[in-house]
C-alpha cells in the first residue's frame, strides 16, 4: 500500500517536473511546478513530516509560486515574443547543464545508502523540529533570519523610487 502510493507520487513528481521544462506556455510551466511541489509535500507526509509538508505548501505553493505566476501573467509571455537565442547561448547552456548533471551524479554516487526511513519516526513533527531548531541549531537559525532580513532590506531599497531632483 505505502509502496504503491510512493511509486504513484514519484511518477507524478517526475512527470510534472518534466512538464515544467517541456510546456510551451510559461503559465503552464508554473502550474506544473506548483503541482510538483504538492507531490513533494506528499512525500514529506509519507515520511511523517507533517510540519515540513504544511510549511512546504504554504511557503512554496502558496506564496512563492503565486508571485511567479503573478509576474508571468503580467509579462504575458508568448511564443512570438520569445527572445531569439543565438547558437552560442544554446551551446553554453548545454555545456553548463551537462556540468551540473556531472556534479549531481558525482554527489549522489558518493553518498552512502541509508535504510528506508521508518514511518514510525516522528522527527518531522512540530515539537521535535522546534526543539532541534531552537536548541541545537539556534545560532544558524538566527543567522538565517538575519540573512533574510538583509535580503528584504535590499529588495525594499531596490524597489524604492529615486527621489526626483527638484530643479525644473
Amino acid at each position: 500500500m505505502t509502496l504503491t502510493v510512493f511509486y504513484l507520487l514519484s511518477a507524478l513528481s517526475v512527470f510534472s517536473g518534466l512538464m515544467v521544462v517541456l510546456s510551451r506556455k510559461a503559465v503552464h510551466s508554473v502550474l506544473y511546478l506548483v503541482f510538483c511541489f504538492f507531490t513533494i509535500a506528499g512525500h514529506y507526509l509519507m515520511l511523517n513530516a507533517q510540519f515540513l509538508a504544511a510549511v512546504h505548501v504554504i511557503v512554496y505553493a502558496g506564496a512563492i509560486m503565486v508571485l511567479f505566476l503573478f509576474v508571468i501573467m503580467m509579462l504575458n509571455l508568448n511564443l512570438a515574443a520569445e527572445a531569439q537565442k543565438t547558437p552560442w547561448i544554446k551551446i553554453s547552456a548545454v555545456i553548463l547543464s551537462g556540468l551540473m548533471l556531472l556534479v549531481l551524479v558525482a554527489s549522489v554516487k558518493g553518498a552512502e545508502e541509508l535504510s528506508a526511513a521508518q514511518p514510525q519516526n516522528d522527527i518531522g513533527l512540530v515539537k521535535n523540529i522546534g526543539n532541534i531548531l531552537f536548541d541545537k541549531y539556534l545560532l544558524p537559525f538566527e543567522l538565517i533570519s538575519l540573512l533574510l532580513l538583509s535580503a528584504m532590506v535590499g529588495a525594499v531599497l531596490m524597489g524604492r523610487k529615486e527621489p526626483q531632483p527638484q530643479n525644473e
Binding site: 507533517q50 504554504i58 502558496g62 506564496a63 505566476l69 512540530v126
Partner: peptide, 25 residues
C-alpha cells in the same frame, strides 16, 4: 485531528488564490 491543524487551514487558504488566478488568466 492532525497536530498541524492551524497550518493546514493556513495552507488551504494560501492555495485558495489559484482558483481565481487560473480562471482569470
Amino acid at each position: 485531528d492532525v497536530n498541524i491543524g492551524l497550518l493546514y487551514i493556513f495552507g488551504v487558504v494560501s492555495i485558495g488564490v489559484y482558483g481565481i488566478m487560473i480562471g482569470a488568466w
